[in-house]
């Protein structure tokens, strides 16, 4: 399956924040759990607004959650 060039550390951040579930994060961000799952797996690139909401939900900067073309801290999906 096609992966995006954007990597993320959402899974790691979820575990660091009291083992937050995908459903919890989805409710905070305002998307479905399936969308959070697709973002984590690198199958879907969120809009800027959703990306910012995810960063705000974790209380970190945007670049601490997402990175482009390189490896984010502890990301699951590597770029090509």
């Amino acid at each position: 399956m096609t992966q995006t060039a954007i990597t993320n550390s959402i899974r790691k951040l979820r575990f660091e924040h009291n083992e937050m579930t995908q459903q919890d994060l989805a409710e905070r961000v305002g998307v479905t759990r399936q969308t959070i799952n697709a973002i984590e797996l690198g199958k879907y690139s969120p809009s800027l607004e959703v990306a910012f909401r995810i960063a705000v939900a974790f209380g970190v900067r945007l670049e601490d959650v997402f990175s482009y073309g390189g490896s984010a801290q502890g990301s699951r999906s590597d770029p090509r």
């Binding site: 305002g30 998307v31 479905t32 399936q34 969308t35 697709a38 879907y44 969120p46 809009s47």
Partner: peptide, 11 residues
């Protein structure tokens, strides 16, 4: 709850 929720950007 899911039925009432609006479509998100991916949907």
């Amino acid at each position: 709850r899911e039925a009432r929720a609006p479509s998100d950007e991916r949907e």
